[in-house]
Design a protein around this nucleic acid. Structure first.
Lengths: 153, 153
DNA sequence: TGGTTGTTGTTCAAACTCGAACGAAACTGT
DNA sequence: ACAGTTTCGTTCGAGTTTGAACAACAACCA
């Protein structure tokens, strides 16, 4: 047990701001996606990540890791997306345990239709408020945190 | 409808890092609080905010706003905390509609016992990774975002 | 080869979250 | 005073999330 160092005023304020801003932002995003595309934020992320993957497909475990969601949570969301025809499940060649989530053409169209409105929110409430210097500093900070929390990548 | 500007590589990477880092951090915090104190992150925030409020009490609506949770979500969590004796409900003097959530002595003790372990996680995976300059820049960025999303305060 | 260990994805129960709808109380303007 | 509007907190139903348990398959090593 290390001696516990408290947060000084500036650290506390920074942490508080981070926490509040990220919650508020997530609420805005959720609301926008739901009303404009009938998607939750995790669902949108699944489509976005798949669209940027080779052959628009990814193993379930890897996809869960990238979205930062539990395995069971991903199973649920992929099922929801599959019901709507935006994603399909394919068996994984070379590993009979594996399942590949594949973005369908319809999923791709839906994503392309949805993305601009989503980006607009991200811009309005975060990106466009920051100078280039602030942006790079924040990015570097976030990457350090990421690095600390997931051993590799 | 404004013409949609996409995110350039740096913006995209920054947004991606922010999103991933905040999710990972929340998972770590949730896990630590659950195992060490049997609290969810929102529950901890409720206790923390109340402890810093005059007379350790706050109106439900104001508390919900600060925790960034829906009114019904707060009702649920306060009920959970009340069952454990960490929080009490009091009628609001001067407004019969109102309800005050009050941190009990036991709630205060539980918070004090829990806080160090929580702060440790926040330090390890965020605060301590940043230089003072990075910290202030990130804080300023987050405050701008906050400002943009909630009209006042 | 055969047995142990690890990984993969799903199912399940429990918990949590949200928005809509609601009754109650406060505010408003006439 | 009083109807109309707003604010307050709760209830409710629906949807989402998680970890634990599980079955199927892979990888390893004697």
């Amino acid at each position: 047990m290390s001696e516990s160092r408290w947060l000084d005023a500036e650290e506390m304020s920074a942490w508080q701001a981070f926490l509040t801003a990220s919650h508020l932002l997530d609420r805005r995003i959720e609301e926008q996606l739901k009303s404009a595309a009938g998607l939750t934020h995790p669902q949108f992320e699944i489509l976005a990540i798949l669209s940027a993957s080779p052959e628009r497909r990814l193993r379930m475990t890897e996809l869960a890791r990238r979205v930062v969601v539990s395995k069971s949570g991903l199973t649920y969301q992929v099922t929801q997306l599959a019901k709507r025809g935006l994603v399909e499940r394919t068996t994984c060649p070379g590993d009979d345990r594996g399942v590949l989530a594949v973005l369908t053409d319809e999923g791709m169209r839906h994503l392309e239709k949805t993305a601009p409105g989503h980006v607009e929110v991200v811009r309005r409430f975060l990106i466009d408020l920051l100078s280039r210097q602030e942006l790079t500093t924040m990015a570097s900070a976030m990457r350090k945190a990421q690095e600390a929390m997931r051993p590799s990548s």
